[in-house]
Amino acid sequence: MDFQTWRHVFKLDPNKQLDESALAALVRSGTDAFLIGGTDGVDAENTFALYARLQGCGIPVALEMSHPEHAIRGFDHYFIPTVLNAGTVDWVVGHQMRAFERYGHLFDSNNVTGQGYIVLNPEAKVAAVTGARATLTLEEVVAYAETGHHLFRLPSLYLEYSGTLGSPDVVKEVKLALPDAHVFYGGGIDGIDTARMMAEYADTIVVGNIIYDNLEGALATVQVVR
């Protein structure tokens, strides 16, 4: 699965309600892929339930496998996050090791990608869960990104603002510093204008929360990359 061709991704939370008509509209939207993942209340049962609804939809469905218990076979691709600015080693390599220990033999390594997350919203739940040092200077963000790409050889980086709109200058500087890295951006995209702002520099924009608040606004974001 060549995720490097993706320009637009809808991120769906297994712990949030989405009716069949809304899901069908997302499938028809022209998005490049669906990413399944969340922070609160996500477990194997609701993850599988959402996967089953999307199975056979004709669009790649990827799993953000942030916890070993979320490992479910059948997804088109698996992203294993490592939070580069986490406050505990568990979120850098601990949970990831457990996932491979328990389930590594079940998956095709060609469909598994390490993804270096940099959490940049100190108020976000993911920042609290991972103990992330999320208040960073621009230079520190770039340095974390360079560490992930050059030292850990991570092919994918994710600038995670989770619920708030980040700085396009941060995305721009990370991409300028690492033109060969595939940069995902997620957080605060609530319509065409914010989608265009971030798509100018990010390789892939991730649209999530607005799906549940303003479906039409979410669908409109696809136009920006088409």
Rank of each mutant, 00 (worst) to 15 (best):
L12C: 02
S66T: 11
E146A: 11
D19R: 00
G104I: 02
V225P: 11
I189S: 07
I192E: 12
D108V: 07
F34W: 05
V129Y: 08
A202E: 05
V170Y: 07
A49D: 12
S162V: 10
G166R: 02
V142H: 14
E20A: 01
W6T: 03
D13Q: 04
D90H: 15
I118K: 04
L215S: 07
Q17K: 12
R153G: 00
P14W: 01
V142R: 08
H77I: 03
L219W: 01
H149D: 06
K172L: 10
D76Y: 06
D13G: 04
P60W: 14
T135C: 12
L50R: 02
Y212D: 02
L63V: 06
A218N: 09
A44M: 02
V171N: 11
L106F: 07
F100I: 05
G116Q: 12
T137Y: 10
S167V: 12
T31K: 10
D43C: 04
E139F: 11
D90L: 15
M197T: 13
R7H: 08
A62L: 14
V206D: 09
H67I: 03
Y103G: 02
A195S: 02
G30D: 08
V89S: 15
M65P: 00
V89K: 15
E45G: 02
K125H: 14
L165S: 13
E123G: 01
M65N: 12
T137A: 13
K175P: 12
G163S: 13
G188T: 01
H150F: 10
R153W: 00
V207K: 12
E200C: 08
T88F: 14
F10Y: 00
D108E: 11
F34A: 03
H77W: 06
V93M: 15
S21T: 09
